[in-house]
Amino acid sequence: MIEVSGYTKRYGRHEAVSNLSFTVQPGAVFGLLGSNGAGKTTTIRALVGLTRPTSGTVRVAGFDVWRDPVKAKAAFGYIPDRPYLYGKLTARELLRFVGQLYQVPDADSEIDRWLEFFRLTDFGNELIETYSHGMRQKVAIIAALLPDPPVLIVDEPMVGLDPHAARQVRDLFRSHADRGRTVLLTTHSLPVAEAVCDRLVVLDRGKVLGEGSMDDLRARTGTEAGGVHGDSLERIFFRLLEDELEEQRRVREEAGVAGVGA
């Protein structure tokens, strides 16, 4: 389970995320959706202990990530958007190291199984510095899944993956959640979000534009009967953005009128 409560992150005067709250229940795949700079990665970084919240709390599996970091971190696996790994280790050595950090029982056979799953068995003894971006991303995914964590936190999961691996990963997330575990992913790929996520938060410039299941969002944006692709997530997303822009324009105009009146 993931609980984000009143999470705000400021860098100087810039507010990257503003008062964000959401909860992800076990058994669900939850998507953080938004354009570049929406605050998705900033939120994820707070959840995995890379960025300290300016205010608010973030809890994973019941543990505050910043007050009880070791227990919280033992409960989640994290897949970053850029898979920087130790180039001078082989995939097997790196995964054994991860297995030790997370105290994974019978790590060797689990590593063999995962390498086979991602068709990396032949490359398991090669240094990671010789891998392509997609192969590194697969190793990062295995590293996150090796401890079979109760919570999986994923930042832009499909970057660099071939179509076959991308489908495998999508299925993995779904099956992980179906086993009663929690999955949180950020993406700006609307088809991925639509295909995998049970619930979504749409962010823009650090603020929540909409939250709920696809049906909730359709109802809120009035896109149930939009014709061809009218009820797609893409339509919902752009409707939310348009609503937000409209709201901002209205506020500016009101402020302008008040200024003239004064």
């Binding site: 995995v48 202990g49 227990k71 994290y78």
Partner: peptide, 14 residues
């Protein structure tokens, strides 16, 4: 640790 430090930072190690 270079850019691979994220692995330690997000792992259950103090």
């Amino acid at each position: 640790e270079a850019r691979g430090y994220w692995l330690l930072r997000t792992a259950p190690i103090q």
